[in-house]
């Protein structure tokens, strides 16, 4: 078991929450992205999840590729040991969270996450990331991004329950993870993951830039 396991607190160790993303089903509609923002009041120009959308050309033939990204709720998360305050911790059900009342906003965890899954929330001035919508999961509901996934690409559930959809897919479909070489043991798995997108993508970057008004008040209030 990873070294941090003993430091886990809160949550029910009977569960191990996880996600399987079936990239073949993703239509790149960003419903997940926006639902996450709405559900979690993510500040403008910040994203807990995003569906990277690519044009891939192979032997001159072009096609589209969509890759939903979010925190992997790693089994051995490098974001946790670096945290100098203990604000970041892993629950016993595997969900990695930040206690925003403790976090000093040093952003060390932001640096340490190999997936760019964390950011500093400019409203709270603390580290922010996907929580697997723990408030919903504990209410017996699905994470916002999963609930509204148009293509049905995001599948969420309990790895400890052998009958769950995620456990079945992980068992039977041999899904892949992002950056396996980092040894983080992600608990977000991918079906249809093209190896070219497994690590840092080699290509022409997006034209997107954070808005100059990142810290501006929300336009809708």
């Amino acid at each position: 078991a990873p070294s941090g396991a003993s430091l886990r607190r809160e949550g029910d160790p009977a569960h191990r929450w996880a996600m399987v993303v079936d990239a073949r089903k993703c239509v790149g509609c960003q419903a997940c992205t926006v639902a996450c923002i709405m559900e979690n009041d993510v500040p403008e120009n910040s994203f807990r999840t995003i569906v990277s959308t690519y044009e891939v050309t192979e032997q001159g033939k072009a096609g589209s590729y969509m890759l939903p990204r979010l925190c992997n709720h790693c089994e051995d998360p490098p974001c946790i040991p670096v945290c100098p305050t203990g604000a970041t911790f892993q629950r016993r059900d595997g969900i990695v969270v930040v206690d925003n009342t403790v976090c000093v906003g040093c952003a060390y965890c932001v640096q340490a996450c190999p997936y760019d899954a964390r950011f500093i929330n400019h409203e709270t001035q603390t580290a922010d990331k996907c929580t697997f919508c723990v408030h919903r999961v504990e209410a017996g509901l699905l994470p916002a991004c999963v609930e509204t996934c148009v293509g049905g690409a995001r599948i969420f559930g309990d790895l400890n329950d052998p009958d769950s959809a995620v456990a079945t897919l992980v068992r039977e479909e041999n899904p892949k993870v992002l950056k396996p070489e980092q040894g983080t043991q992600p608990r977000v798995f991918y079906l249809g993951l093209d190896p070219r997108f497994q690590g840092k993508v080699d290509g022409t970057p997006t034209l997107w830039r954070p808005s100059s008004k990142t810290h501006a008040r929300k336009e809708h209030a």
Binding site: C29, A31, L141, L142, T148, E219, H220
Partner: peptide, 29 residues
Amino acid sequence: LSRLDEKGLKGRSTACGRGNAALEMLTSP
């Protein structure tokens, strides 16, 4: 729609990206 027996996965009911954001039109300045 809930996690109960994973019903919410099987009978997923969705709004798209636009549909998720459109509520902003209500309070738009």
